[in-house]
């Protein structure tokens, strides 16, 4: 018996992840942006490092829940989480948790290359039969859609920025090796920078 993984299938997908990140962030407006560890961190940093980004360098499985805590604390701001299939698969239970809270300002975007790209391009479970948007839909997300090409991307962009939350969008992207574009990696600095930008000087005062 063998498993159902189709390693390398995603090499043929048309959408390049950096172009997807650029398109997603072009319309961010006032949105606060969280990126999961690894490639989505480099993606948002390639678009431009900024104080109201929180790029994770660790905490695998935690990006979506970090987004929930932020969205609950800031109900007047859109919170956009970009993360990979590996990070989401490690925290699938959090989709149930998030759907249960029904944050109307939270959008999760799975940038799905079907691979653990940082560790040697090994296939993830989405390279087989696992359907992330199907899981999000079954969990009870208010808005769920997916994109595999330019037309799909154009369709989901308005949902990411304005769809009724919680939103779950899965975008299949091409498996490729890209230059790493790294933001600062000191988490305490990233945290203080983010809080200063969002909350003002009182956020780090005594």
């Amino acid at each position: 018996m063998s498993d159902v993984l189709q390693a390398g299938r995603s090499r043929a997908y048309p959408l390049p992840r950096r172009e997807v990140a650029k398109a997603l962030l072009a319309g961010r407006g006032e949105a606060l942006v969280v990126a999961g560890l690894g490639a989505t961190n480099w993606d948002i940093s390639a678009v431009g490092d900024r104080a109201d980004n929180f790029p994770l360098w660790g905490a695998m499985g935690g990006a979506a829940m970090l987004g929930l805590g932020l969205a609950l604390a800031q109900p007047g701001r859109r919170v956009l989480v970009l993360t990979g299939d590996g990070d989401l698969l490690m925290g699938l239970g959090s989709l149930a948790t998030i759907a249960t809270q029904r944050p109307d300002n939270l959008a999760l975007v799975a940038i799905d290359n079907e691979s653990y790209a940082e560790t040697g391009m090994q296939a993830t479970a989405t390279a087989g039969v696992v359907d992330l948007p199907g899981i999000a839909r079954a969990a009870g997300f208010a808005t769920v859609d997916s994109a595999v090409d330019e037309a799909g991307l154009a369709r989901v962009l308005p949902l990411v920025h304005g769809g009724a939350g919680p939103v779950f969008i899965a975008i299949k992207v091409r498996l490729e090796s890209l230059p790493l574009v790294m933001p600062p990696k000191d988490g305490a600095y990233l945290k203080d920078r983010f809080r200063l930008a969002l909350l003002g000087p009182g956020a780090v005062a005594a």
Binding site: F54, G62, L68, A73, G91, A203
Partner: peptide
Amino acid sequence: VAQLAGAWLGGQ
């Protein structure tokens, strides 16, 4: 743990 990190980032 992750949720409350997000809460702190958001001021709660």
